[in-house]
Design a protein around this nucleic acid. Structure first.
Lengths: 339, 339
DNA sequence: TTGTAGGCGTTATCAA
DNA sequence: TTGATAACGCCTACAA
């Protein structure tokens, strides 16, 4: 059996055709399995064999140009994190798995450092068929993308004008507060990042509304702004009015706070009870089982991809997309030993 | 200021040219900044303005076809994990950051489920300029890739025929054993996965050689095979000859073992001391500070990318690549409380 | 059953 | 300074 030898330039359909004294389209038809159009069994066989022998591989770039479709979808976030971030990693990982079923590949656009305009250019330069987007609605990119024909589905945070797949943040916060209430907590704080995110806003709104509903006065349901996930500096303010339940906007912030409590000898949960949000408890043997809200990010990614594929199909058929809707997936509370 | 309106099909250079009664190549020359070839200042200005107004964005697919270069590099692993895996996540995250400097984008090829042949096809279909590969040398893909002109750099595990960037596994194991020795340990086990990986083999070889050098008899330096990262079932065998130092092939396996010790009330480190490998200690407040070897995976990724870019440049200039070499980066031991 | 012609959008080479 | 032409590799319509 002959092995295809290492070639410097890839073998094209034209090369195969020349080898067999056939026309290039004939070769192309046979190799791309053009149903309907039949070829003689003899040529078919010769072509298949020769292509195999020469190591022919259709050029996907040329195909994309021809079809106006690349079978690649992009993932972009305007937050300055990469795939090592729990959230983005989970989304991308789940997308990676889900892509297989659709015969799609995944492209990561490195936002890091590029201005919105540049980013926008890269997103609509024809290399991706659609985009999974995670951004704050204050990102200029959002408005520009809204005017472009590129199919976009937002995840985690809804964006005006795009279909979105999110978690039921409000319900999660209500469930969390319900559990805290049961355990006897009556003094609360919500640790919110200064960056503005719809999902966090929903958590915060639910925090205020649910506690008001339960008759908690404003001074016992404070909002404490923190720098992104840096919850440690907030501990001083928390202990002043201890005992208190500190509801962190996400798990990282909660772990940060827990570490600070440990370092300063603040007792958890007696003085400060701590909760997270997202459900990224991993198997690295945490000292405490963080009480948190389990968000089904894998399902979010899968559903977002499903919707995106649908949008891409519609666009291919030049049909108008349906009006954008937000799909909210249900969440549950994970109990632990930090409240 | 006029906004480009939402169009169904993207604006091409031809559209811009028609708008201005110019030829398409003229527009293209001006917009792609053809140095040397100059255009009149008047037309240049008209073209730039009109392109901006119409929302023109050069099609990257067409460009790629023309240039034979996509400015995308691929990442592939034949192990069944996605970006949520510590190792792959760290590599991909670091690549994502490093790509910016080279104006490259990253493509994730979902290996999950596709046979090597299919995978190989996707890797050489012209959509990527080069590949960062992590695979066992038993993967059929490796041999096929070796005969293809696609630039490839292996990470973490060296592969015959490719340049590789790895960590100094042997040195890491020696340092680890040195520390264990200092702390008085004289009975050891290496928990190795059944899957065969060059890096693990190096760790194992160093384990045996270093202990032999220190005069430890064979029965006190056993190799215990485990299923990938499932170290828990090995605990029975470990406790039989306690006290013992269990050197796990990676951090996950070590955390698994720690959890099992906790569950069964086995005292760490008195009965069983535990070490990991890789250095993926994160900030989620672990109950124990795992003693492990810190591998500079970020640097591995950055160096691999650097080499890959070099190979791509060479290939572009149709020059032969240098003979493949393995670059081994130094590692250090992270001390903790598990030994 | 097969070949010819044309075009996807871009860039490079020439000639005007 | 600009325009015509060709090519990258592929696929589709149509003609033979």
């Amino acid at each position: 059996m002959k092995m295809p030898t290492a070639t410097l330039s890839p073998v094209t359909a034209k090369d195969v055709a020349r080898e067999l004294d056939l026309s290039q389209p004939t070769v192309s038809r046979i190799l791309s399995g053009d149903a309907g159009h039949r070829a003689s069994e003899a040529t078919r066989k010769r072509v298949l064999e020769t292509a195999e022998r020469m190591g022919y591989q259709p050029n996907a770039v040329a195909r994309s140009l021809r079809h106006g479709r690349t079978n690649v979808i992009g993932v972009h976030t305007n937050h300055n994190y990469d795939v090592r971030n729990d959230f983005l990693g989970t989304i991308v990982g789940a997308l990676q798995c889900a892509c297989g079923a659709y015969h799609l590949d995944l492209m990561l656009h490195n936002s890091l450092g590029s201005p919105a305009e540049t980013m926008f250019g890269k997103l609509r330069d024809g290399r991706i068929d659609g985009l999974i987007l995670h951004a704050g609605s204050d990102d200029p990119l959002v408005e520009i993308l809204g005017r472009s024909p590129l199919p976009v589905v937002a995840v985690a945070d809804s964006l005006p004008g795009f279909p979105a797949v999110t978690c039921d943040d409000a319900s999660g916060m209500e469930q969390l507060l319900g559990l805290l209430w049961e355990r006897g907590h009556r003094n609360f704080a919500f640790l919110a990042p200064r960056v503005w995110l719809p999902s966090v806003e929903k958590r915060q709104k639910a925090f205020e509304a649910e506690l008001e509903r339960r008759g908690v006065r404003a001074q016992s349901r404070r909002i404490i702004p923190i720098d992104f996930e840096q919850a440690a500096p907030a501990l001083d303010e928390l202990t002043k009015t201890a005992p208190i339940a500190a509801c962190c906007w996400n798990d990282r912030a909660a772990y940060n706070l827990l570490r600070e409590c440990q370092a300063r000898g603040v007792r958890v949960p007696e003085q400060v009870a701590v909760t997270g949000f997202d459900g990224f408890r991993d198997d690295q043997l945490p000292a405490r089982e963080l009480v948190t809200v389990k968000c089904p990010w894998e399902d979010v990614a899968a559903e977002a991809l499903r919707q995106l594929v649908e949008l891409i199909e519609l666009r291919q058929k030049k049909q108008a997309p349906p009006p954008p809707e937000e799909v909210r997936l249900p969440v549950t509370v994970l109990d632990g030993d930090t409240i």
